[in-house]
Amino acid sequence: MKTIFYMLIIIFGFSISASDARASNSLGIFAECLVQYDAERMKAWVIWDGPGLIYKELGTVVRRSGCDQSVNWDYWDFRGALAEALLKDKYASRPVPDLQDAKPVTDIEMALAWGNNDGREGMLLNVFSECEVRKNSGEIFRIFMTKFSSDAENQMLKTLKNNAAACRSLAGNIKIRISNQALRARLAIAFYLTDKDEISTEN
């Protein structure tokens, strides 16, 4: 009886993780479709800090684009997926730039001084993500080229966390307690925004 019970737990756990992976992959496909339909509008959605613009325009864009929105998504994860799709489209046949000396995006002092607990954690995650992007943009970009929830993604994000002492310290010794998908999204947004000036001047 115990053996059957444990097998059911294992099967249930696997089905949940498989469902999460399919949802993540579906979100990535949805984002790539939207970028192909209207890259300029997707850039605005990534840059805009807040869900209002996306939620206002989403229904019309999805209807006109024909892109399949068959998966529920979190605001940050969606923006991250769009940022990834834009970056992969841009650097499909070009070298990834070294962003170490790019113009700063996140106000570190303001993030560290932020009073509201929820807002503070979000700001510090931005500090952490931008720090990691600046530290090794090539390695971060390689994460975006892995399949969502794959062994390769898990290993690369595990390595990033294990080597992230300097960026965690910069971000007020923040503990990275978010999911891999959420961390990947934050890294993608940070990469896009740090690289934004170059993107905007080329289009």
Score class of each variant (00 low, 15 high):
132 E>F: 06
132 E>P: 08
144 F>H: 09
127 V>G: 01
97 P>H: 03
17 S>P: 00
83 A>C: 05
95 P>N: 12
37 Y>D: 06
145 M>Q: 15
114 W>D: 09
10 I>H: 03
158 K>G: 15
10 I>M: 14
112 L>M: 12
40 E>L: 15
29 I>P: 00
29 I>N: 10
103 K>Y: 06
190 A>V: 09
190 A>E: 00
6 Y>E: 15
149 S>C: 08
72 N>P: 00
72 N>C: 07
117 N>H: 10
185 A>D: 09
126 N>A: 14
184 R>H: 11
174 I>P: 02
83 A>W: 04
17 S>E: 12
100 Q>G: 12
182 A>S: 15
162 N>Q: 14
75 Y>S: 13
143 I>Q: 09
164 A>E: 06
117 N>A: 14
55 Y>W: 12
9 I>M: 12
64 R>E: 14
3 T>H: 13
69 Q>V: 02
86 L>W: 05
108 I>D: 09
103 K>L: 13
4 I>T: 05
150 S>Y: 07
16 I>N: 02
59 G>V: 02
74 D>C: 06
27 L>M: 13
180 N>K: 12
150 S>M: 04
53 L>A: 09
131 C>D: 00
186 R>E: 14
56 K>M: 12
183 L>E: 10
141 F>K: 02
160 L>I: 09
119 G>W: 06
104 P>I: 00
7 M>E: 14
75 Y>P: 06
151 D>L: 11
44 A>V: 08
75 Y>C: 07
59 G>R: 14
130 E>K: 10
77 D>W: 10
80 G>C: 05
66 G>Q: 12
43 K>H: 08
19 S>I: 09
34 L>S: 00
176 I>M: 07
24 S>K: 07
11 I>L: 15
26 S>L: 09
194 T>I: 02
26 S>E: 15
98 D>W: 02
158 K>L: 13
161 K>G: 02
123 M>V: 08
185 A>Q: 11
61 V>N: 03
134 R>P: 14
116 N>W: 11
131 C>E: 04
14 F>N: 11
22 R>L: 11
61 V>P: 01
67 C>H: 05
